Computed example of a mutant assay.
Amino acid sequence: MVVCGVIGAAVTAALDEIVFHQILHWHHFYDRSTPGVGLLSDGLLHTAELLALVAGFFLYADLRRRRALAPAHALAGLFLGAGAFQLIDGIVDHKLLRLHQVRYGVDVTPYDWAWNLAGLVLLGVGGALAVRAARRSRARSVA
Rank of each mutant, 00 (worst) to 15 (best):
R140G: 04
L123C: 06
A48Q: 05
V37T: 14
L51A: 14
A52E: 01
V121A: 12
A118F: 11
G90H: 01
V92K: 03
V142A: 15
T109R: 14
V131K: 14
A14Y: 13
H28K: 03
L59Y: 13
T12K: 11
L78T: 01
L69H: 08
W26P: 06
R65Q: 14
D42N: 15
Q86N: 03
Q22F: 15
L75E: 05
F29A: 02
G81H: 08
A76L: 03
A48T: 06
D89N: 09
V108I: 13
G8Q: 02
W26F: 14
G105Y: 13
L39K: 15
A139G: 05
P71Q: 10
R135L: 13
G81I: 03
V106I: 13
L80C: 07
V125L: 12
L39W: 15
F58N: 06
S137V: 06
R65A: 10
A84Q: 04
Y30M: 01
L45Y: 05
G38S: 10
I88Q: 04
L75W: 13
G81L: 05
G38R: 11
M1C: 07
T34H: 09
R103M: 01
L40G: 00
D16M: 06
G38C: 11
L69T: 12
V37P: 11
R132W: 07
L15M: 15
A70R: 14
P110G: 05
V131P: 04
I88L: 15
A74W: 05
R132S: 06
L129N: 07
A74D: 02
V108G: 01
V102P: 03
L122M: 07
V19M: 09
F58E: 11
F57M: 13
A76Q: 09
L51P: 05
L44Y: 04
L120H: 02
V6S: 09
A10N: 02
S41T: 11
V108S: 01
L123G: 00
L75K: 09
A13F: 08
A128F: 09
L63G: 04
V19Q: 06
H25Q: 14
A143P: 05
G43V: 06
G126Q: 07
R135Q: 07
W113T: 06
F85E: 00
L45V: 04
D112Q: 15
G43R: 13
Y60I: 10
G81E: 03
D89W: 10
I18W: 10
F58H: 15
A128S: 10
T109Q: 12
V19G: 02
V2E: 06
H28M: 04
G77S: 12
H73Q: 13
P110M: 11
